[in-house]
């Protein structure tokens, strides 16, 4: 695969939930190492768009290429793409019956065939990186929300993905825990990870994003670099939205 291939390429993607048209002709081209922040009002389809990228949702029309591979019903292709794509959820979705360390190593051991010592080493290094190595033997339920989300990020990274998807990673957190998670995400951005982030944290967007995407009613209404996006939004809808979330 050549360098020129985009990390993620969505062409005319459409999706329906029954009669409800959630995604309308989504076109998005995300380069390697690019950080894209998607924002928009709830119900605008931003989460669904991101979930289509690793096939947690299927799209009915259009094509999606991830790392040069086309997403179809082909199970091997789906597995290959999921191997390249990490995902962080709003509700963390840690495995409550496993320790923090086991949460990180389950994927690498079972799907990558790593030995337990190798996986443990990799996991501990990542827990250091998200600054919670001392919690390795606890269960997720004993951690704070911010710690849980950092574990979730480390769990994704443990699969050594090329692309990371974040679906509202701070929306379920107490205000004082948001920054510890955003810090980890910023570091990740600095390391050159390809990231697609659905968030309302505009401070993070300003600092980390290469590209802003604004969605409304299933459509991409506006894309642009953060500077022009925040200072001179072209569409009225986007302006309205930014006024709303930046006013307080």
């Amino acid at each position: 695969m050549s360098k020129s291939v985009a990390a993620i390429e969505m062409i005319d993607v459409n999706k329906w939930f029954g009669d409800f048209h959630v995604l309308k002709d989504i076109n998005l081209n995300i380069g390697r190492g690019e950080r894209v922040v998607i924002c928009g009002p709830s119900g605008s389809g931003k989460s669904t768009a991101v979930r289509c990228i690793n096939r947690l949702e299927t799209h009915e029309k259009g094509t999606i290429h991830v790392d040069g591979m086309q997403l179809s019903n082909n199970r091997k292709a789906i597995a290959a793409i999921r191997n390249e794509v990490g995902m962080v959820f709003q509700q963390f979705n840690l495995f409550p019956h496993l320790t923090v360390l086991e949460n990180l190593t389950l994927g690498p051991i079972k799907s990558r065939g790593l030995t337990k010592p190798d996986a443990d080493d990799r996991a501990m290094a990542l827990l250091e990186r998200v600054r919670i190595p001392e919690q390795a033997d606890k269960k997720p339920g004993q951690l704070s929300g911010g710690q849980q989300q950092r574990v979730a990020i480390a769990r994704s990274l443990c699969m050594e993905p090329k692309i990371m998807l974040f679906d509202e990673p701070t929306s379920a957190l107490d205000p004082e825990m948001i920054s510890e998670v955003l810090e980890v995400m910023l570091e990740l951005a600095e390391d050159g990870m390809t990231m697609v982030v659905v968030t309302h944290e505009m401070g993070f967007a300003r600092k980390a994003a290469d590209t802003m995407v604004f969605m409304d009613e299933g459509k991409i209404v506006e894309t642009g670099d953060p500077k022009t996006f925040f200072e001179a939004p072209r569409t009225e809808r986007c302006k309205q939205f930014l006024d709303q979330i930046l006013s307080h």
Partner: peptide, 25 residues
Amino acid sequence: RGQAEAGRTVGLTYFQTMRYVVLPQ
């Protein structure tokens, strides 16, 4: 459902997700 989804995103197959994530819970 997020549990199974998380299992799939860390590369587990359907049956691995059942065996290691969903069924124990």
